[in-house]
């Protein structure tokens, strides 16, 4: 019986039919999705912090408005994704609990500090750029609610990368100090953004299952290469450089070659030893704990009003 369902399930996936929450699905598929979607959601929420950090310091009113809108979008994206995960039978509070207790992960990139205004440009250009590259294929994810959430996310995300590039473009035309600020930011964020695509394919033996289920459609290395190729061209427009002496066009491959990634650093950050892991998590926990009385009060009020209404009826 179980096997027959498995067959039907895989057949649907192969025919590009979306799986919906109430359809039969292998338990592992469900778990995989909950994990992936919730971690994606956590990344959006934690990702608000390094940029939110600059809202009060944005250098012009236009930039301030754009940055607020952008960080707010990220809250919205987190919300869409939590909602998609909730269709699989887990509550948002449970997911928060996983985040706050350190059981659930989020994208390591947000454990790096945003030190200058140019970081707002680089986060938009490189970090959002890498995220978009990861996310666009997810719009065709086999799980309907995830795919739909991602369509919404990607639609809204497109302005994020543009505003980041624009910040850098303006800096590139600016004073010497501004150009220095921008180059420094690129130097700090380049390697961590390459790490955003995850470990190398040959260190990821089980990618196959995920591809077969069409949760994932391209391998980490494929996406990373695509990203490097795009950025290596774009950085020329800015007149800046990427901090990689091995970066070179390879005519034969039709791709840019690039230097080795420091995976030790990657694993250190994943394991909680990044420069801001503790601050990020503490900030989220603080917001959640200090908001408890607010949430309780709103619920108490709603219940009180519902009872009054009932009594009056």
């Amino acid at each position: 019986m179980e096997q027959a369902f498995e067959q039907i399930f895989q057949d649907k996936i192969d025919r590009e039919v979306r799986i919906e929450p109430k359809d039969w699905m292998p338990e592992k598929y469900r778990q995989t999705l909950i994990r992936q979607i919730s971690q994606h959601a956590h990344s959006e929420i934690i990702g608000m912090l390094p940029e939110g950090n600059w809202i009060t310091r944005a250098p012009s009113l236009r930039r301030k408005a754009i940055l607020i809108a952008k960080v707010q979008d990220e809250a919205g994206h987190g919300l869409y994704l939590y909602s998609a995960a909730e269709t699989l039978g887990i509550s948002r509070d449970q997911m928060y609990d996983q985040l706050h207790t350190g059981k659930a992960k989020y994208s390591s990139i947000f454990n790096y500090p945003s030190l200058s205004w140019a970081d707002m440009g680089v986060v938009g250009w490189l970090v959002d750029g890498a995220a978009i590259m990861n996310q666009v294929p997810l719009c065709r994810s086999s799980f309907g609610p995830y795919a739909r959430a991602m369509v919404r996310v990607c639609k809204e995300e497109s302005f994020h990368q543009r505003q980041g590039f624009e910040i850098l473009y303006v800096l590139s035309k600016g004073t010497e100090a501004q150009r220095k600020m921008a180059q420094d930011a690129i130097n700090r964020w380049w390697w961590p953004s390459l790490m955003m695509f995850g470990p190398k394919d040959d260190e990821s033996p089980n990618t196959i299952q995920s591809m077969k289920w069409k949760i994932k459609r391209f391998s980490n290395d494929e996406l990373r290469q695509k990203f490097v190729d795009v950025c290596a061209e774009q950085v020329k427009v800015l007149g800046f450089t990427l901090p990689d002496k091995d970066l070179k066009w390879n005519e034969e491959r039709g791709h840019y070659d690039f230097g080795p990634i420091n995976w030790d650093e990657f694993w250190q950050v994943v394991q909680g030893n990044g420069p801001c892991n503790k601050e990020r998590l503490d900030a989220r926990k603080k917001a959640w704990e200090e908001g408890a009385w607010v949430r309780d009060a709103a619920l108490a009020y709603a219940n009180k009003k519902a009872k009054q209404k009932q009594a009056a009826a």
């Binding site: 929420i45 608000m48 912090l49 939110g52 809202i55 009060t56 301030k64 607020i68 960080v71 707010q72 809250a75 919205g76 987190g78 919300l79 939590y82 948002r92 900030a283 603080k286 917001a287 200090e290 908001g291 408890a292 607010v294 949430r295």
Partner: peptide, 19 residues
Amino acid sequence: NSEWCGHGPILEQDIAITN
């Protein structure tokens, strides 16, 4: 009000006050 962005008591209200 923008100081609340990212620190609100619940996601929906974080978005509201940021708006």
